[in-house]
């Protein structure tokens, strides 16, 4: 595990010494800030209208702002995840540095875990910036922090799962753009798989819906820590890393 940590530290270093991490966090904050502003404005407008009509304003900030916002945050995530994961192996393959990693006394799994963990940390760091907006809610209102925390856990788990898939796709090519596009397609498909079940009650549609990443976020978004959904995310992570390991191994046998 020491080796995984060494790889992870180097990986984080290269995210942060290049403009990648800073660009991503700027864009993420910008987009999330816009969403926050829109939801806040519509919430304020709504409560003002209700007050003028003489009714008691609905003051559930959790339901009105935090929940839809975090659902959006998890959606914004799927645009950023390919950008984070696409370089992980594709860049090493292109630069030939993969030869250094695979000829060092390090296990493949240690390299994979290190890289995936670095990507997950970067994603957490992006998401952390969205938390700044929520600080304002805590200053001016009294939202419940527990559902917020669980929703964040959901976002991080979801991100980690998609990043594991992205890591796998990154091993398939030496072209970062192909890796990024492939990851984006996979993320988007996993997102919309659930739509089938809304009009088709067949068994396969249910399976597809279960595979969809969004159906498992709902409970987290409501502030429910569901073991079923956690297990889904953990198994996607496991599968992604497992496929990565097999793909790296096949690289050795084929290339």
């Amino acid at each position: 595990m020491r080796n995984a940590w060494i790889v992870c530290r180097r990986e984080l270093g290269s995210y942060f010494t290049s403009p990648v991490a800073w660009l991503l966090v700027t864009l993420y904050s910008l987009i999330f800030g816009y969403f926050f502003w829109v939801y806040l404005q519509s919430f304020l407008l709504q409560s003002m209208e209700l007050q003028m009509m003489g009714r008691i304003a609905p003051t559930n900030i959790n339901e009105e702002i935090i929940r839809p916002l975090l659902a959006n945050a998890s959606f914004i995530g799927i645009f950023f995840i390919p950008l984070i994961s696409m370089r992980l192996f594709a860049e090493e393959k292109r630069n030939g540095t993969i030869e250094l990693l695979t000829t060092s006394p390090v296990r493949d799994m240690e390299v994979i875990l290190g890289k995936w963990f670095a990507a997950t940390i970067l994603y957490c760091w992006l998401v952390f910036y969205s938390g700044i907006s929520f600080c304002f809610l805590f200053i001016y209102g009294h939202p419940d922090w527990r559902p917020l925390a669980i929703a964040y856990l959901g976002i991080v788990l979801q991100g980690a799962a998609l990043l594991a898939l992205g890591t796998f796709i990154s091993t398939l090519t030496r072209n970062q753009i192909i890796a990024g596009a492939g990851t984006f397609a996979a993320c988007l498909l996993l997102w919309v798989f659930s739509w089938v079940s809304s009009f088709n009650p067949a068994g396969w549609a249910q399976v597809l819906a279960y595979l969809s990443i969004i159906t498992h976020f709902e409970s987290f978004g409501r502030g429910v820590l569901s073991s079923k959904d956690s297990i889904y995310y953990l198994s996607v992570i496991f599968m992604g890393l497992f496929l990565t390991a097999r793909s790296l191994e096949s690289l050795r046998w084929r290339s």
Binding site: I6, R10, N95, G96, T97, T103
Partner: peptide, 28 residues
């Protein structure tokens, strides 16, 4: 084994000394 591939496996965004430290750590 110490191995120098045909193209030196350098991480172009790293400083030389950081890179050598990284490789050293990888090799134990």
């Amino acid at each position: 084994i110490g191995y120098l591939p045909e193209t030196p496996p350098l991480y172009l965004e790293m400083e030389t000394v950081d890179y050598l430290r990284f490789v050293g750590q990888l090799k134990g």
